[in-house]
Design a binder for these strands. Structure first.
Lengths: 210, 210
DNA sequence: AAATGTGAAGTTGTTCACAGCT
DNA sequence: AGCTGTGAACAACTTCACATTT
């Protein structure tokens, strides 16, 4: 029975908030201080009515006849998304994908700090061009505790994914970005976002046939 | 006015087809030949009514009182998804992510063959543990032509993404898996699936706050 | 005049209830 | 009896139309 007030905000609206945020940053960099829903919506690839509706889920931020204050909207969104302060993240499973994510500069840019990289056999993982040391799974609880980690990126093989997820949750993680192609079963209070490359490709494949 | 009959199939249903397919393969490996919508739905993490509805978008495949023939359903789905034969794919932009995808074994497993890897400066890309040679962008049209490539994975920096997408489309690509965090504008007949790591993280971040 | 905010209408997707096979 | 297939009810999300504010 938690997130009562929040549940009524469509999940898709929250995704769009991220898009708006990116567009707003571009506008800000171009020295633009005020933007109408019409213009921002176009930049984000949505209808202006949808943008306005999305924003009203969180309050009223515009000035009628004028539009929205770019800086203020950015503030508001990053507050609502919880990206105002650096969010600590661990990456578990340093195979090809895990390694790529470790050296992905985007994390820091978007307000996430990778505070740990873990693998069952850390020695196997040539850490590549990343400076982060890969640690064994035994260190996981320590690091999660020390940095108050709430978020994990899961790149282990599908066979290990559920077990590792269970561990993460036990140690206090409440949000998992799951790259393993299986359906994780987790308690209600844990949020899982799945990224499944094979599924995306198969989906595209469908649309190729006419 | 194309895909008239297909447009009415919800895109989400097509994604779920991929999930069902994976579950069915697991069942098949366990020597199970027949499955009810109830059981398969549970494995896929959906309601049984939804599974049945999804399948009826494509026809009738079950036997009342009995269930579905596992093998036959697998056949049907792979046919509808267009994964019966190997689908050729090119990867453009061999940075960290591109390199990871190049050495990702999942592609072949799921019916996709990477027939080319491209980058503006191929020499920069230490091809890592993959055996595939990285080629310069000039080779792109040749390879697309030679292998009848319809699908591309786009891993270039956001500033280059639109331009490269335009090229791909010009050369005949009609489906793009886009990792660049921008909204690509493409003609109607081209399908784009976006994967945006930052957005997924931000989205999770929202759910961490209670 | 210009642009937001929002109830109501419309659209899309999901679940129910049950008829219809095997 | 058991389980699929499906029209109808329902729920979620999007778009419209317009009242409201600056």
């Amino acid at each position: 029975m938690k997130k009562v007030a929040r549940t009524e905000i469509p999940r898709k609206a929250i995704y769009r908030l991220s898009v708006y945020s990116r567009c707003l940053h571009r506008l800000e960099n171009n020295g633009i201080h005020t933007v109408s829903s019409e213009v921002l919506a176009k930049a984000a690839g949505v209808k202006s009515t949808q943008l306005r509706k999305d924003l009203t889920y969180f309050g009223q931020f515009g000035t009628r006849g004028l539009g929205y204050d770019v800086k203020q909207l950015i503030e508001m969104i990053s507050e609502r998304l919880g990206t105002k302060s650096l969010q600590p993240v661990v990456i578990v499973g340093i195979g090809n994908l895990g390694r790529a994510l470790l050296s992905y500069r985007g994390f820091a840019q978007e307000g996430f700090e990778v505070v740990g990289a873990f693998d069952v056999s850390p020695s196997r993982c040539l850490s590549g061009n990343s400076s982060m040391k890969v640690q064994s799974m035994e260190e996981l609880p320590k690091i999660i505790d020390k940095h108050f980690v709430k978020m994990a990126v899961l790149c282990v093989p599908p066979t290990a994914a559920q077990e590792v997820a269970n561990q993460l949750i036990e140690y206090g993680v409440v949000a998992i970005l799951n790259f393993a192609p299986i359906v994780l079963s987790v308690p209600d209070e844990v949020t899982v976002n799945n990224i499944n490359l094979a599924m995306e490709l198969e989906n595209l494949s469908y649309f190729i046939n006419e």
